[in-house]
């Protein structure tokens, strides 16, 4: 009575016996299936992340349309130098991450660990610069809700003497810009922090030789995540820092 599997005719019985590597989990038939499943899962997860950030991008689109002068003035308060450095740092970290994946594929444990550590360092550098920028925003009273003053916007911005100061009603709307600025970069930074935490675990496991035995999908998938976080920044940088910088 018990456990008759579904009718299988003998000629269909899978006869190919794979050597089961230790990282093949019991419910997968083949390594290939496991690898495909995990990368498919990762792509789906990135899709949910796109929807997550998508909500804020939608808000950005609407408000930028309504309050363009406020967005320009807000953008001109950000440091383009720090933003550019951070962009470079993140692209660099994406490169080291890609190299880490390559090292895992070529089963080079030492290189893998080095590149992962480099990625962590670059991630921390990014966060360091970001927190410095946040600190500056705090000191300049640009944090809506907690510490905000329209002072900088109803007066001429010394860095942009050609900009006309905003009338009070538009100056108030810079709060929307900074709300979006903090929400978007804050969520991005949160993703960086989560990424760095996972990287630390990966480094520890890589010491034990986990990802240099042919099982590269964890590193690969984490690479996808890291590149995604990088790409989000590639969008954030022009949208937040570079509004009307072409004159």
């Amino acid at each position: 009575m018990d456990s008759q599997a579904i009718a299988t005719s003998p000629e269909h019985t899978p006869s190919v016996e794979h050597a089961h590597p230790p990282y093949l989990r019991h419910h997968f038939e083949t390594v290939e299936q496991q690898r495909e499943a995990s990368s498919f899962g990762m792509w789906l997860f990135l899709l949910t992340e796109i929807m997550f950030f998508g909500g804020m991008f939608a808000a950005y689109l609407i408000y930028r349309n309504w309050y363009y002068p406020a967005f320009v003035a807000g953008s001109h308060q950000l440091s383009i130098v720090l933003g550019t450095i951070n962009t470079a740092v993140l692209i660099g970290s994406s490169f080291t991450m890609a190299m880490a994946v390559y090292s895992a594929e070529t089963r080079n444990r030492k290189a893998l660990i080095t590149y992962l550590l480099l990625t962590i360092t670059l991630g921390l550098v990014f966060l360091g610069i970001k927190s410095d920028e946040y600190h500056e925003k705090w000191e300049k009273h640009h944090v809506p809700g907690l510490n905000f003053s329209v002072h900088d916007f109803v007066n001429v911005n010394p860095a942009y003497p050609d900009d006309k100061p905003l009338p009070l009603d538009m100056a108030e709307k810079t709060q929307v810009y900074f709300s979006l600025y903090f929400a978007m970069t804050g969520m991005h930074a949160l993703h960086m922090i989560i990424g760095i935490s996972i990287l630390i675990i990966l480094v520890i496991k890589a010491y034990g030789g986990s990802y240099t035995d042919g099982h590269v999908s964890t590193i690969e998938n984490f690479g996808l995540y890291w590149h995604f976080v990088d790409i989000v920044w590639i969008f954030l940088f022009p949208l937040l820092y570079l509004i009307s910088r072409h004159q």
Partner: peptide, 20 residues
């Protein structure tokens, strides 16, 4: 009255203050 800058009538200077 509240957001004069966003409701600027053509031909006039944007000098109206907000009454927000």
């Amino acid at each position: 009255i509240l957001n004069p800058t966003m409701n600027q009538v053509a031909g006039y200077a944007p000098i109206m203050p907000t009454y927000q």
